[in-house]
């Protein structure tokens, strides 16, 4: 028998050699726990994220845009499924994870606690929220846990498509009538800062970062990813004539990056802890869907059992 210490050493050696960890491999408990937390949080985010976008499906302004949005939200549901499956390879089941979401024990991306107020918000979500998600997810395609990395590869392909669609909505609106332009700018104003918060707290305040980097669950820090996102997005905003709502935003020749103003971390922690504009509404909707669906799930099981019993009797 190898001691835990030896096992851990071998485990770290594998990670250092870029060998993926697979479900049946030995792994430290804390690694397993971190992954379950992160993957399920990610799955919950996909599912809760269906709500703010779903809010505009019935009001999409053209049939083409309705189809695109429906297909997009369907993709999010699909991502939720892959991710729940990836989490299940770590020995938890989906029911448990959903229970944790509904009781508030598990978190989901805080960004979905903001409301979608106009059609431009659908553009802003695609462009900024999916954009920020992609920065994070591209990194996760190389994460050390095999099933998670493979789920992310599929997800990334679809997300970059979503981002282009979101940007297209913003572009059309930014170049449209004065009212559309105003909606587009307003959406950018409201979604910009919450999007930057999506990368998580600054590196010196992030409790998980150091260990996650060592295990190669994460491969870049929150601040690095945030900077990459800002640098890319500023140019995209300029291209369509929208203004990033940050008076301190300025190109820094020496750093070769944009400097940006202070992020309101107080708001971030308030929203995470349940005080965002839509936290209660989102959870109410999820719990309601789950509870109202209980009779359907029960009936489906009862029917399957009846069928099986008949088959056995025959």
């Amino acid at each position: 028998m190898l001691s835990n210490e030896q096992l851990e050493k071998e485990f770290q050696a594998k990670i250092d050699a870029e060998i993926k960890i697979e479900p049946k491999d030995w792994m430290p408990d804390a690694y397993r726990k971190t992954l379950i937390r992160q993957i399920s949080q990610h799955a919950h985010s996909e599912v809760v994220g269906m709500l703010p976008e779903g809010n505009w499906i019935t009001r999409a302004p053209s049939l083409r845009s309705k189809v695109i949005l429906l297909a997009k939200v369907q993709d999010e549901a699909g991502h939720g499924l892959y991710l729940y499956s990836a989490a299940e390879t770590l020995g938890v089941d989906r029911e448990e994870l959903i229970e944790e979401l509904h009781t508030g024990k598990a978190k989901y991306s805080s960004i979905f606690n903001y409301p979608t107020l106009t059609w431009a918000d659908i553009g802003a979500i695609g462009w900024l929220v999916d954009g920020a998600a992609i920065a994070n997810q591209v990194m996760l395609c190389r994460t050390s846990y095999g099933p998670y990395a493979r789920a992310m590869v599929r997800i990334c392909k679809e997300e970059s498509f979503h981002q282009r669609q979101g940007y297209e909505i913003m572009m059309k609106m930014a170049q449209g009538t004065p009212e559309q332009r105003q909606m587009a700018q307003d959406a950018l104003n409201r979604w910009w800062w919450p999007s930057l918060m999506m990368f998580g707290p600054p590196d010196d305040k992030s409790i998980h970062t150091a260990q996650s980097l060592k295990w190669k669950i994460k491969r870049q820090t929150n601040d690095e990813l945030r900077q990459e996102f800002i640098d890319k997005t500023v140019k995209q905003a300029e291209f369509i004539g929208l203004t990033i709502p940050d008076p301190d935003l300025k190109w820094n020749e020496e750093r070769q990056h944009y400097d940006y103003g202070p992020i309101n971390w107080e708001e971030f922690y308030q929203v995470i802890n349940g005080n965002g504009p839509c936290n209660r509404q989102r959870m109410r909707d999820r719990i309601k869907a789950h509870e109202e669906g209980a009779w359907v799930r029960e009936a489906a099981i009862a029917y399957a059992e009846k069928k099986q019993a008949k088959k056995n009797a025959a």
Partner: peptide, 19 residues
């Protein structure tokens, strides 16, 4: 049908109905 989006009894059926 699209009004169901995000409110189905289980994720798989949400996907089927959106389809």
């Amino acid at each position: 049908m699209s009004e169901w989006c995000g409110h189905g009894p289980i994720l798989e059926q949400d996907i089927a109905l959106i389809n």
